[in-house]
């Protein structure tokens, strides 16, 4: 399909088209756009584990929190400039991913895995609250203004450009992973784990790898959170946040990279649109999610896929 390959290159126009955005947006709107960007890696990582690997693991908020706290602690306690904390945040997220994936290696599946991974997230929240000298306890910590190569990111517009680079990087890398042997192994495990093992796929190793990659990408999202919000508290990583993140991938499209991007944008933007109907915001937001799940069980990405084959995820075909 050489024609499609050319059209897929056009995806690069999306970030390019976004470049002048800070010229047109006020600080608040720019903040909302940055929030959207932050939720892209958060959704991508979640989707790799739940959508592509197919395991009901709800520890995403743990990876997110670990990433945020890693960046926060490194910046506040050790004075490390923010941009140098991004990679450690991702690595800590990957580590947390491996830890959360251990029950899955012991054969824990479905609701049991869901509950154990939920517990993992809550356990980390307990750590954030109790480990006061490092995390600042329930009040959390204020993170110094983020800086990159010695420049401080003073405006939301500055953060936007750094975030855009990170998001493009995460999308491209995850696309690579999903289209490689790794992605094919994830897909095989999702469809039939026993058959995957019978085809010579070391399923344990690939389950752990999916968790690690998911945790890494989400951890970087956490680092972006620390830079964007400037304040890291345990309450930001609670069950409500987890449900929001789950909504991102459900509305965007389970197992779809494009879906993670769309979901992040829609779920972040929707409450802003509903602001006009004061008092009904949550209701409308809930209705939106229900409507998408009812009428588009494969998410908004499936709607685009119907419009043009360029939007179809191609994780298997080489």
């Amino acid at each position: 399909m050489p024609r499609l390959r050319v059209t897929r290159r056009l995806f690069w126009l999306v970030p390019l088209a976004l470049l002048p955005l800070p010229l047109y947006l006020d600080q608040y709107r720019q903040y909302v756009v940055n929030l959207m960007l932050m939720y892209v890696p958060v959704g991508i990582g979640f989707n790799v584990v739940v959508g592509n690997l197919g395991l009901l693991a709800f520890s995403n908020v743990a990876f997110f929190g670990i990433g945020a706290y890693t960046s926060g602690v490194l910046a506040l306690k050790l004075g490390v400039p923010w941009w140098l904390t991004i990679l450690p945040a991702g690595l800590m997220g990957a580590l947390a991913g491996c830890a959360a994936g251990i029950p899955a290696l012991r054969g824990v599946r479905l609701f049991y895995l869901a509950i154990m991974t939920l517990a993992f997230g809550e356990l980390l929240r307990w750590v954030y609250i109790r480990w006061v000298p490092v995390t600042g306890g329930s009040f959390g910590m204020s993170v110094p203004p983020p800086s990159v190569f010695g420049w401080t990111l003073e405006t939301e517009g500055h953060k936007f450009y750094v975030f855009l680079v990170l998001v493009v990087l995460m999308v491209v890398l995850t696309d690579r992973v999903l289209r490689s042997r790794f992605g094919r192994a994830f897909m095989a495990i999702k469809d039939n784990e026993l058959a995957a093992a019978a085809m010579g796929i070391p399923t344990d190793r690939y389950i752990l790898l999916a968790f690690a990659w998911g945790g890494f990408v989400v951890g970087i999202g956490g680092s972006m959170y620390a830079a964007l919000v400037g304040h890291v508290t345990p309450i930001a990583f609670d069950l409500t946040e987890l449900i929001l993140e789950f909504a991102v991938i459900m509305v965007g499209g389970l197992g779809s990279l494009l879906g993670s991007v769309i979901g992040a944008a829609v779920i972040t933007a929707a409450p802003e649109f509903f602001r006009e109907w004061l008092g009904f915001q949550e209701l409308l937001f809930g209705l939106l999610i229900i409507a998408v799940i009812l009428f588009l069980p494969r998410g908004l990405a499936s709607l685009l896929a119907r419009l043009h084959p360029v939007f179809v995820d191609r994780y298997y075909r080489d």
Partner: peptide
């Protein structure tokens, strides 16, 4: 023990994965 949601071709290809 096939991969029920994948096509015949993808099932075959996964047979050569390892």
């Amino acid at each position: 023990d096939l991969f029920p949601d994948l096509t015949v071709e993808d099932n075959l290809r996964l047979g050569a994965w390892a």
